[in-house]
Nucleic acid binder design. Structure first.
Length: 419
RNA sequence: GGGGGAAUGUCCCGAGUGGCAAAGGGGGCGGACUGUAAAUCCGCUGGCGUACGCCUUCGUAGGUUCGAGUCCUACUUCCCCCA
């Protein structure tokens, strides 16, 4: 991994120069396979929430690169595996989701892929499959006989996902223990159904991926490869993906395009180049120019990054609106109607609303108590004026141009509108 | 099967003589400084109430006590030793 092989295939070159590669199981063989013609590769996504979040973006972008390089991406929705739950990186078992919840999540997640990939029936068109299709059909004994024989407990215990749990003296159920078998079987099924020979994923998935590679090589004597991406953290060591206000969801109804734009705009200086290579289609020389900007000028690069990333997910119009709102709010101190808003019945406002309650309802604080503490710390502002008394009652007199501008900190802003 | 130890603030680690909303970190949030950056410094970090306050928290369920995270019993899960 440390010695960088010079790849010949366009795909692996692209992956390498843009920084997606952490580990590859058989680099030279995979390179040759990519050179020989279009390959099929997949990444699995479990349906644990009703939207994917920025942490999944690197995987989505990888599938995009794959297609750009003339290969066929398979998006695997984990309708079956989600019923079991991936123990990787979990300290303890998560509550199990019902079939209905899982299906609802899958329905809600799917749409974003259409923004990044071209689906269809052509040789390099993306396809989406659900592993419930085969996993749900296995009988227990059949599954054990067909696949269980290929896995030893000795080896399974050596994988990090299991070892971590044991080291922390946390219970791991037999159900969870089977997750890696299921993921391996997924790979095998996709190899048989679609000729898929490469599984990609985050570095935490290495163990699960390697198991699938070995299963295919052993059972079908076919070539199979695994590729993982580096664990994404910011330059100062924080885990990427959280932002002011929690998880950065990809679905617009859970995270507005404005917030999504803000997430990228707030990138640390040292990460700008790396993120542009990973999360945008900007040409490399352009990125090199932008990331070399010094001091405050690098803010221009961050805007380019935010625009490009937001355009990919939400479209150009949304990206421009987000930028315009941000410029107005931060650079000119003005209001923009594109800022996130919260609607309140006009009657309530006429009767008077306690600030702490309003701030909590509008999503600026998790509770009234938190809103009070926020105010006492000087972090709550009403129409740009810090308000330390959260018990104050707001009314129609506080409307400015028809709205009340509420802010928690400098970046979380909500426009309260009477309706 | 027997013996010993452990589970703490629903993010994590972690102290805790019977009077505890519970030390200290990390993380998170806010403030100052900046460039909507990083680093640094300061404050906050269970819920509800304007407030004296009320409610809910220390694996689960009971018990002793004026009072229990702290003592007792049973159960659950984990670790170690013996068989």
């Amino acid at each position: 991994m440390t010695s960088e092989p010079a790849f010949k295939s366009e795909f692996l070159r692209l992956m390498q120069t843009r920084g997606y590669i952490h580990q590859i199981t058989h680099p030279a063989e995979l390179d040759a396979a990519c050179l020989a013609g279009p390959i099929v590769a997949y990444i699995g996504f479990d349906a644990t929430a009703s939207s994917l979040h920025v942490g999944h973006m690197i995987q989505i972008m990888m599938l995009r690169r794959l297609q750009q390089a003339g290969h066929k991406p398979v998006v695997l929705m984990g309708g079956g595996t989600t019923k079991v739950g991936d123990p990787t990186d979990k300290d303890s078992q998560r509550p199990l989701l019902t079939d209905e919840q899982i299906q609802a999540n899958i329905d809600s997640i799917q749409a974003v892929f259409r923004r990044f990939l071209t689906f269809g029936d052509g040789p390099t068109d993306a396809v989406m499959v659900n592993n419930a299709e085969w996993l749900d059909r296995f009988g227990y004994v059949q599954f054990l006989r067909d696949y269980g024989v290929h896995f030893t407990i000795n080896r399974m215990l050596s994988f990090d996902s299991v070892k971590n749990r044991l080291d922390r003296e946390q219970p791991m159920t037999f159900l969870e223990f089977n997750y890696m078998l299921m993921q391996s079987v997924d790979f095998l099924e996709l190899e048989r159904r679609h000729g898929c020979l490469l599984q990609m994923g985050g570095s935490d998935q290495w163990g699960n991926i390697v198991n699938g590679v070995e299963l295919i090589r052993r059972v079908d004597q076919k070539p199979a490869f695994g590729l993982t991406t580096p664990l994404l953290s910011t330059a100062s060591g924080q885990k990427m993906g959280k932002s002011v206000g929690g998880a950065v969801w990809l679905n617009a109804d859970m995270r507005s395009p404005y917030d999504y734009w803000q997430f990228w705009r707030n990138t640390e200086d040292a990460d700008v180049g790396r993120f542009m290579r990973l999360f945008t289609d900007l040409p490399l020389d352009e990125i090199a120019r932008l990331e070399s900007l010094e001091g405050a000028q690098i803010n221009e690069a961050k805007k380019v990054l935010a625009n490009a990333a937001t355009t990919l997910l939400h479209g150009e119009e949304a990206a421009q609106a987000a930028e315009a709102a941000a410029v107005a709010a931060f650079e000119q101190g003005q209001l923009s109607t594109d800022l996130p808003s919260f609607e309140i019945p006009r009657g309530d406002l006429e009767a008077g609303v306690v600030l702490a309650a309003l701030a909590a309802d509008a999503g600026l604080a998790a509770s009234r108590g938190e809103a009070r503490r926020l105010a006492q710390g000087g972090g709550l502002r009403v129409n740009d004026t810090a308000e330390t008394d959260a018990n104050r009652t707001l009314g129609v007199a506080d409307l400015v141009d028809g709205v009340i501008k509420l802010a928690a900190g400098k970046k979380k802003i909500v426009l309260v509108r009477p309706v």
